[in-house]
Nucleic acid binder design. Structure first.
Lengths: 220, 220
DNA sequence: TTGTTTCCGGAACGAAACGCTCCGCTACCG
DNA sequence: CGGTAGCGGAGCGTTTCGTTCCGGAAACAA
């Protein structure tokens, strides 16, 4: 079925651009809901597009995944920059976390384990973590964030909550997730009766997930 | 045909019983890490067992999944009963949550969407939720748990944290998860500066995940 | 209108992976 | 020392997947 009303842009090029966006959105939804093993036709179907149109823009499924991961990391960097620009350190940090979770950033991170990661992707990831570091220290200096958490704790938290895939604002799933997130954010504000158990996660441990969980691939 | 009555000892029957346990453990690890699409041979490999031995005990992959889901729910019921027996309501509830997360209960719940659920499974699930209800009200009456959360909030939380699969105690992953969980549990103890947003999740919404996400198939 | 170009949707294809069966073999039992 | 319960894993038939390719619809030019 074609699109009933072509409101913005005329001609085929406009439609192509629109389809491009649709594909990226659909891929994000489907991949983060079903994991990297989601099928190409499922994505095309969700986008309301034929598989041919998908392959005209991305040479392969892995290529699409790479675009997606990169885009997700860039979005989270934008969110971090916006958070740093906010006057109130706590509001900035909390907004950052909420945005990342809503976008499904965390659901996409594990997908990186199933594709060849380019050095460029590592660089973007590193930049993102540096920004998160600044966000965290700023909030702690302000006394709004409990002092025994680290930026990696926060990153892990975002991944934990985002793992259920993105949920569009307005859906019941989104509401529930924001509710649970609110509980956790309350837990972040000041120390509880006991200090946090264990030691903060190491950067090594965090990065390992990208290199490891590939084994469902071929042996070759 | 009943289970081998003799669980420990020497001889083939003992080995059979041991293998049975290994298979169940391996299946839990692999399914909750890779989802319902994990392959049978991956499970057998993880258990250190041939696929033949696996099929001698479970007629099919779906059969194994059903056993696994049922067992997980029963374990979480046991945990809830132990929690109710604890003298301190808060310690009981917190222990219950920690146990469920560590066991990976939450990672198994979504798998139920990919198999035919028997009425018996619904019944067990209902019993579990009733127990969780009592746990929550007891802790709230004691003033240890913020009054604006419901048992379904807690159930959803367990699923959110457990979704990364079970992590054996002692592993770094387990430590990190318990750390993040500690933050959230602090957030549960008393109300934050703002009340929780939205409305509590409805039982309907919670149960829907069991009926819906099965069709990675086409159409409709 | 008619002819040309552009790009879409999805049927079709070869390859790969899967669930499951089957069988030769080992290790225990009497 | 023959009998046998139970094992691991190769192999079978089927399904599914990523990718290609083409008939035709929509947009443009004349």
């Amino acid at each position: 079925m074609a699109y009933p009303a072509q409101r913005s842009g005329r001609g085929r090029q406009a439609e192509a651009a629109r389809n491009d966006r649709r594909v990226l959105d659909a891929a994000r939804e489907v991949f983060s809901a079903q994991g990297a093993s989601a099928t190409v036709s499922a994505i095309a179907g969700r986008a309301g597009v034929g598989v041919g149109s998908l392959y005209r823009r991305y040479g392969s499924k892995a290529d699409l995944l790479r675009h997606l991961c990169t885009q997700a990391m860039e979005q989270s960097i934008e969110a971090a920059e916006a958070a740093l620009a906010a006057p109130d350190p706590w509001a900035g940090l909390a907004g950052f976390v909420r945005t990342c979770v809503a976008q499904g950033t965390g659901a996409l991170a594990p997908l990186a384990g199933s594709i060849e990661t380019t050095p460029e992707m590592w660089e973007i990831s590193r930049r993102g973590r540096a920004l998160a570091d600044r966000l965290v220290t700023r909030a702690q200096r302000d006394g709004a964030l409990r002092p025994d958490v680290t930026a990696l704790d926060i990153a892990w938290l975002i991944e934990t909550f985002g793992r259920q895939g993105p949920a569009a604002p307005g859906t019941p799933q989104h509401a529930v997730r924001q509710r649970l997130l609110a509980i956790t954010l309350d837990g972040l504000r000041r120390s509880g009766p006991d200090p946090l158990p264990g030691t903060p996660p190491s950067a090594r441990l965090y990065e390992e997930r990208w290199a490891r969980p590939a084994p469902p691939a071929r042996s070759s």
